[in-house]
Amino acid sequence: MASNRKRVALIGKIGSGKTTLMQRLSQEELIYAKTQMISYTDHFIDTPGEFIELPFFARQAINVTMDAGLVILVNSCIDPQNSVSPNFVHTYNIPSIGVVTKIDREDGNIKRSRNLLVYAGIHPKHIYEVSAYTGEGIEELQKVIHHYMDPHRNKK
């Protein structure tokens, strides 16, 4: 089985912006597409939102992403509900960061999203705020991803 250590796993609810974020980070055209199944690219593992929202699939989310080099828990600041268990990221034995998406939206609540990510076990200083559409925060997030992933990706 191929190692996913060189990939970043994206986990979050349906509509949280995981795929759009992945497209922006990969410098691809932003095309909305509902992720129906696990998607592997050279650098990312994109998971369906159902993996977080439906307890039946929670173990699947963990199994698929357990050997990634980094887990990014994504939370949309326009989503008022939480579906992530307390301290969810402590399930992993790999680095985890949080990303608040859709910060360009006027109807967003960034503070609530940050609180939900902390509730899920992300340290507040490891939470990044981005807009995949405007590009705000993307450069800083890319630097953080490179910090975690370059040691894995530079191994032969």
Rank of each mutant, 00 (worst) to 15 (best):
I38Y: 09
I38Q: 09
I38E: 10
S39V: 11
S39F: 09
T41S: 13
H43S: 09
I45D: 02
I45R: 02
T47I: 03
E50N: 10
E50I: 11
E50V: 11
I52T: 01
I52S: 00
I52N: 00
E53A: 02
L54N: 07
A58D: 08
A58M: 05
Q60V: 11
Q60A: 13
I62V: 12
I62C: 02
I62F: 05
I62G: 00
V64F: 07
T65D: 09
T65E: 08
M66F: 14
D67V: 07
G69N: 06
G69T: 12
G69C: 11
G69P: 09
L70C: 12
V74I: 15
N75M: 08
S76K: 12
C77V: 09
I78D: 15
D79A: 14
D79I: 13
D79S: 13
D79Q: 13
D79F: 07
P80I: 09
P80Q: 05
Q81E: 12
Q81P: 00
V84D: 03
V84K: 01
V84N: 08
V84W: 01
S85P: 00
P86G: 04
P86Y: 04
H90Y: 01
Y92C: 01
Y92G: 00
I94Q: 07
P95L: 14
P95G: 14
S96K: 04
G98M: 12
V99K: 01
V99T: 11
V100S: 00
V100W: 05
V100M: 02
T101E: 06
T101G: 01
K102I: 11
I103P: 03
D104E: 14
D104G: 11
R105N: 10
E106H: 10
E106G: 14
G108M: 14
G108F: 13
N109G: 03
N109K: 05
I110S: 05
K111L: 14
R112H: 10
R112K: 15
R112Q: 08
S113H: 05
S113I: 05
R114V: 14
R114S: 14
R114P: 09
N115H: 14
